[in-house]
Design a protein around this nucleic acid. Structure first.
Length: 639
RNA sequence: GCUGGCGUAGCUCAAUCGGUAGAGCAGCUGAUUUGUAAUCAGCUUGUUGGGGGUUCAAUUCCUCUCGCCAGCUCCA
């Protein structure tokens, strides 16, 4: 028997090593740099620690911070580091869970003391000490029973509870110095690796996310192998703050909310309303072009309608209490669909009428818990860009493809190009025939396929009344937002006994699809603000150009130009206030207006304007017609 | 709804140990007529989120309440 083993690397090259070498030793054979960057490895596709010994031929791929799963390991280990520090400062602290998250990590702990931001600094200091100590992180395996005994003796009730939920057998734990934590691993090899980290915030979190359970204190943190990356991350957080639509909304005078009148309700100021109107007009025009008809329906409907639709059964917590009108209960609509169905039922439909594509910018009201309200992104009253498609089984596939294509086109036009689909399929306890589910899911799958979208499938994640596709769009700074939703409904056609007369002269149940492309106008505009950081493309900018005079003599010229622009359908604003030109330009710049047109003596005499484009420091003098041509091309290009 | 933090002028923020609220911007008035990111001067602005309490005295301490923010849960 040889005491050498063969290690196959991802590039299919083979390294030979002594039997029993650790993964760390082997990384050294590949390269010093890689050895330094290595966090863990996958041996025959199983994640292992660097300290794991290898005693047989295998494949090996090294996990660094930047490789898949690397961040999770790094951050997970960082959460252990933090937990250790917390334990040193507060020996009585009970630890719950401490995973890596999308960006960073947290640990939920249970202590009597309420933590403050100053405490975070203290914890950071102790963490730095532990980094200095460079403790080796070692894995140990033991039986579940022994682990229960150990953690019980430490008073770690949450760990014990977790252990009791694990299957019998061996469990693993990791030890670094005096600290030990139940964990599957893998982990980094020693605590010295955490050269740059920061604890970010404290928040409450329920044990196991259940509001009936005890509220724990959660500490969020972030860590990177390279201090430069930490800085980059903190800058990113700063950027997020700068883009906050609530802040930009105030600065650009777009909207407000009024807590004294009611939270979660949006007041659109003139400029915000302009922006909204432009988007809505475009939306309507495109819907007509794409074969939709547009509806308007009421804001309230009798409770009997909501009983028929089933909403009073499964959507009650989100609906407002009824108001009495002539002894009948009326309820503010949380959805538009029952109203569209009422219109459907005003006449008998032949298969020849289908598909019907009925859209509505329908304002709905939903009760949201006060704590979740957030600017325009999470509100209690909002306008869905809703539509319902009623069609025959034969039409379904084409219809879904069309909706998806339309949606993707819309997002592209609005400046969002990175889009991902999420397909949610039949859950337990669903309604509707199995064959209908299959047809529907198949059509959703095919549509995603033909659109060439990245897709994630959430098996069993659909609503009880039908499968759906959600689209998530990525914004300018890489955040994903769930926007479009395309959703089958097998429930309402049944409950309202909808039908059409088929070729065979018999009644048939139509397929019904709900879809919202932008989602809600409020939320969409909020995201649009953050995506563009308030620098909207010319075609949707509420103010496209600010006209600035150099001295009083040019006021008539400016006013004439302004009304000429309005006549031509542009959105100009004249700033003829008695202020210095520099002052007015500064203000126009902070208002993020696409063009600033300065008119002084020279321009007024020659019929030109000095145009300064947003983001550019230099201005260009051109004829007014040249300026219009420039705007036209920017508008046409949706720049 | 829950946990924590925070509520001072339209906005951003200050006020030592409890001593009776102030600065910039904005706004108004006037002067200035300006060449690409802030012209100058003067003036105005407050139930210190609200109620109650402790105190000679509360923005400050206590208490209740409302709201916001960060999360949890939920979600377009």
């Amino acid at each position: 028997m040889s005491d050498k083993i063969k290690i196959t690397l991802p590039d299919q090259s083979i390294k030979e090593a002594d039997k029993g070498s650790t993964v760390y030793d082997i990384t050294g054979l590949i390269g010093k740099g890689l050895q330094k960057a290595a966090l863990a490895a996958r041996v025959d596709d199983v994640p292992v620690d660097l300290s794991a010994p290898i005693d047989k031929d295998c494949s090996l791929s090294i996990i660094t911070f930047d490789s898949e799963g690397g961040r999770d390991i790094f951050w997970h280990s960082a959460s252990h580091l933090m937990a250790q520090a917390i334990r040193r400062i507060y020996p009585g602290a009970k630890l719950a869970i401490g995973p890596a998250i999308e960006s960073g990590f947290y640990y939920d702990i249970d202590i009597d003391k309420t933590l403050t931001p100053e405490d975070l600094l203290e914890i950071e200091k102790v963490m730095a000490q532990i980094v200095e100590e460079n403790l080796p992180v070692t894995r140990e395996e033991l039986s579940r029973a022994d682990a229960v005994k150990l953690f019980s003796s430490m008073g770690e009730i949450y760990k014990v509870e977790m252990l009791n939920d694990l299957p019998e057998g061996t469990v693993s734990m990791y030890r670094q110095g005096e600290f030990v934590d139940l964990c599957r691993g893998p982990h980094v090899m020693n605590t010295g690796i955490f050269k740059s980290f920061k604890l970010l915030s404290i928040a409450g979190a329920y044990w196991r996310g259940d509001e009936k359970n005890r509220m724990l204190q959660r500490i969020y943190g972030i860590a990177f192998p390279d201090p430069k990356e930490l800085k980059k991350h903190l800058d990113f957080m700063e950027e997020v703050k700068k883009r906050d639509h609530r802040r930009i909304g105030r600065e650009l005078d777009l909207f407000s909310t009024h807590e004294d009148v009611g939270g979660g309700l949006i007041y659109w100021h003139p400029k915000g309303a302009r922006l909204r109107t432009i988007i809505e007009e475009w939306w309507r025009k495109e819907h007509f072009k794409n074969g939709y008809e547009i509806l308007y329906t009421p804001h309230i409907g009798r409770s009997t309608l909501w009983e028929t639709s089933g909403h009073l059964g499964f959507y009650k917590e989100n609906m407002y209490s009824p108001m009495k009108i002539d002894d009948n209960d009326y309820i503010l609509k949380p959805m538009n669909c029952p109203f569209h169905i009422k219109i459907y039922q005003t006449s008998l439909h032949s298969y020849r009428d289908l598909p019907l594509r009925w859209a509505e910018l329908g304002t709905v009201y939903r009760y949201e818990k006060s704590g979740v309200l957030h600017g325009m992104l999470r509100v209690r009253g909002f306008t869905q860009d809703d539509a319902h498609i009623f069609c025959t089984p034969e039409q379904i596939e084409g219809e879904i493809k069309e909706v998806l294509r339309f949606s993707l086109w819309m997002w592209k036009t609005l400046g969002f190009t990175d889009i991902k689909a999420y397909l949610a399929t039949k859950p337990e306890g669903s309604v509707g025939e199995q064959s209908r589910w299959e047809t529907a899911q198949e059509s959703l799958r095919k549509a995603i396929e033909s659109a060439n979208l990245k897709v994630e499938i959430d098996e069993g994640g659909g609503a009880f009344y039908g499968p759906k596709i959600d689209l998530k769009v990525r914004d300018a700074i890489g955040r994903e937002w769930q926007m479009t939703t395309i959703q089958f409904d097998f429930n309402e056609p049944e409950r309202f006994d909808m039908y059409y007369i088929g070729e065979d002269g018999q009644k048939h149940r139509p397929y019904m699809v709900h879809r919202a492309l932008l989602g809600s106008i409020e939320r969409f505009v909020g995201i649009l603000i953050e995506h563009y950081a308030g620098r909207f493309p010319v075609w949707i900018s509420p103010v496209q150009a600010i006209l600035v005079n150099v001295s009083e003599d040019q006021v008539p010229f400016i006013n004439a130009m302004k009304s000429n622009m309005i006549d031509r359908g542009y959105r100009p604003q004249a700033d003829t206030r008695n202020e210095s030109m520099g002052y007015k330009i500064r203000e126009a710049v902070t208002q993020k207006v696409p063009y600033i047109c300065v008119v002084g003596k020279n321009e007024a005499e020659n019929g030109t304007v000095s145009v300064r484009k947003r983001g550019e420091k230099d201005s260009v003098t051109m004829s007014i017609d040249e300026f219009y041509a420039m705007m036209d091309s920017d508008i046409a290009e949706k720049r």
